[in-house]
Design a protein around this nucleic acid. Structure first.
Lengths: 205, 205
DNA sequence: ACCTGAACACCGTTCAAGT
DNA sequence: ACCTGAACACCGTTCAAGT
């Protein structure tokens, strides 16, 4: 059967998750699909737009925040973080594609809408939501970078045969179900800090 | 005279500013220095560490925040933004190097220290400072991406010979002195939002 | 409509050899 | 100490040609 665009996107996501953004090349992707690299250009205009499609896929059907705004936004932030942690290098990828129309420009629309319902002005709501997204992306970006670095640090560390190396991080981190990430106190605390500021600006606009 | 490591870093910064991160290649850099690409590896271990040096150079001698913490941090944030806007794609570059020890891991130390002097606990101060840095990087990243996109949009726009195109952006933006960027209300407002949250957490810890 | 094959203009990095 | 020359193993993209 002939290749579909969805096949290409799916395979690309697979490579992203297994080998990371740096190893996601058109040629490797083509190999993976058992096709010549040039064949990909029938399904996709170029690598840039393929990456934009990946962002779309990663952020598809993100639940809207609801309920009381403060816990609502806190929970939505956690959900976005979880979604991002589900794909390797996703924060870097999403950050780099924020300017492309196809992609991640409108992630902040949902939280902005929630704040508008709370009586916030449209500009203030847009600003607060955008700030929230910057925070989430920045935090997860760093989180994912350290995750890449951790294995390297272990490999480079002079292994001591007397005291065998423990598991990479805390022991329960590995026993979590697939793609279910550990809650991160730094993350929720950082978000709370911003939410407190939003709260203040909601009370005295 | 023989090349110095500083020459390499300086030339790399030049290419970054003129052509952007994507066009900063070892080969182009070598051409620029009138040397073979392989010669660069005498002065620099690899591209990665060269990029880390660029980050160091871009963030060197960043002024410490001082005075009353709230205007102090607001002003420091503006200064960091100005520093970043002084070099093309710097936010992307700095973000991608945050995990490397050489580079931008300690940008948040100065603001954290200021908050500690205000009586904040070490963990809280670290967290607040890190959150502030994420915000700044996220905002400038997006700002710089749009700056790259704007010329493209103009080029792609079907030019109407009847109504000649105006200047790219607001007319006074170009008349600013070198590397002095326009103040951005969205930026300062976003920072203020976080600072209000920090203020709340300072009053009821 | 969908893909191959070959080519073009590039990359980062290594390494023996020169001076 | 510092650099060249050549090579290795890659890139993204285009395009005529095949089926």
């Amino acid at each position: 059967m002939a290749l579909s665009k969805q096949d290409v996107v799916d395979a690309a996501l697979g490579i992203l998750d297994e080998y990371g953004l740096a190893d996601l090349t058109m040629r490797r992707l083509a190999d993976n699909l058992q096709v010549q690299a040039s064949a990909l250009y029938w399904h996709v205009a170029n690598k840039q737009t393929l990456l934009a499609e990946l962002v779309r896929a990663i952020l598809a059907d993100l639940p809207h925040p609801n309920g009381p705004w403060r816990p609502g936004l806190a929970q939505w932030s956690e959900q976005l973080r979880e979604r991002l942690l589900g794909h390797r290098d996703s924060a870097e990828l999403v950050s780099s594609m924020r300017a492309i129309a196809l992609a991640a420009t409108d992630v902040e629309d949902a939280p902005a809408a929630l704040l508008r319902r709370e009586g916030m002005g449209p500009e203030q709501a847009r600003l607060a939501a955008q700030t929230l997204v910057h925070l989430i992306l920045g935090h997860v970006y760093e989180e994912q970078q350290h995750a890449q670095l951790a294995p390297l640090a272990i490999a480079h560390a002079r292994p001591d045969p007397q005291t065998p190396q423990a598991a990479p991080s805390s022991p329960d981190r590995d026993s979590l179900p697939d793609h279910e990430s550990a809650p991160d106190h730094d993350f929720s605390a950082g978000i709370s800090l911003l939410l407190a500021g939003i709260d203040a600006s909601l009370r005295e606009p």
